[in-house]
Write a protein that binds this DNA or RNA. Structure first.
Lengths: 226, 226
DNA sequence: AGTGAGATTATGTCCGGACAATTGGTGGGC
DNA sequence: GCCCACCAATTGTCCGGACATAATCTCACT
């Protein structure tokens, strides 16, 4: 949670983190546990600790990203099923055709949640968050044709841009509330970008609010002019 | 000490380290402390820990080397003085002329210890070990002309080979006994190589025993034929 | 011989406490 | 105003204990 707080700007470079005792009181943990958390941050080079002075943020946190061979979105879904992760969406359900193209089963899997964000970019955007009870140390999905290949096979269109990643993250308070879980819970954030100019198809992962530094969601949408 | 044991081959890749409880009993420490030690090794990638299986050595330890801006030997001495480190030698005292050239004060600073090693290479070799109560995280000696420059200026000779490094290490039992301290104590090992063929001057850092994987000493000697 | 349940034994993750070391802050004396 | 002694706060390093978790081992059973 501290790492997330640093990442999203709650604590900026130069700020002082709560002392160990404060963390104990805040989260009802022992000093030992608080120390472990701060130690991890220190080892990651995000903070510097000095006696008497406290713990100072020295570098902005980069979200931990697992980039390598994650396969397509279907793989991700399958992985989520195997790992008994919870798949949730918020925003409207994706169009059937699009959902089918993405290999999504709109029945059962989808728990529609309240639309988050009201900005223009949120219109028509469906977001997917796969919630994990534990964050896997390493995603073990086999390398495999990307979702772009599947789209190309079914629709005959070609994605001109591909960008995929999966991130293990810790939910902060507002998002946790939105998703009906507790702050500090682990979540897998998926992100993919596909853009086909020819068919004006735009499949993008975006943040609900520009103010959010995180990209929490997997989005399926079309260009606004569509 | 475990790290040193891995480095010097006491534990080889694939070997099992003592369990936490065994370490507790061996060194009369709490499990927490033993865990910390093993955790450091694990974070350094030297060992892999698995439940029930134990702690397995997965990579040979490279001695931690501080290579960068260490300056010359005088700087090192000054640093040792400032940091109130203990400077010890064993073997015969260096010749006055050579010692002067090296900027060494043969009076006071030198605590002659027993000659270690009987091999031919040990003849006439004086070794210096700078002992530290704590291992500095980073040597903070200013960059500065190397000792080779000083030699050149005073003797008009040119070192044809320069190799300098300083290593923070932990004393194992035999060396600790030799130096009259306790196993596990911290020490700074210095190493420099200078060779001037023109004047047949050879200033080298060598290990006392070829079997020793460590180079513990700073040596000042002349070629055997000298 | 193979299988599976259970015991065993490591490590992983917590709790609680004590004291040391460092260093910023404070206040008194000059 | 400056300096120095002292205090207090914070992290660093230990101790001790409890239980969870995972993986190996054992052994009865088929």
């Amino acid at each position: 949670m501290l790492r997330a707080a640093i990442t999203n700007g709650t604590y900026k470079v130069g700020d002082l983190l709560p002392t160990e005792q404060e963390l104990c009181a805040l989260h009802d943990i022992s000093r030992h546990t608080a120390r472990d958390a701060l130690r991890l941050l220190s080892e990651a080079g995000l903070v510097t600790r000095k006696r008497r002075a406290g713990t100072i943020v020295t570098a902005p946190a980069e979200p931990a990203v697992f980039v390598q061979p994650l396969g397509g979105f279907q793989d991700l879904l399958q992985y989520a099923r195997d790992a008994q992760l919870k798949i949730m969406t918020y925003g409207p359900a994706p169009e059937d055709g699009l959902a089918q193209a993405m290999g999504l089963d709109t029945a059962g899997w989808w728990e529609l949640r309240g639309q988050r964000g009201t900005g223009p970019k949120a219109v028509g955007v469906t977001r997917v968050l796969i919630r994990a009870d534990c964050v896997p140390e390493r995603a073990e999905i086999q390398a495999h044709p990307t979702i772009a290949d599947a789209i190309e096979a079914r629709f005959g269109i070609v994605a001109t841009r591909i960008d995929q990643q999966i991130t293990a993250m810790v939910l902060d308070a507002p998002l946790a509330q939105l998703l009906g879980t507790e702050p500090g819970a682990a979540a897998l954030r998926t992100r993919r970008l596909y853009h086909d100019e020819q068919n004006n198809l735009f499949l993008a992962s975006e943040t609900a609010h520009p103010a959010d530094r995180f990209v929490y969601s997997q989005s399926f949408t079309r260009e606004r002019g569509d």
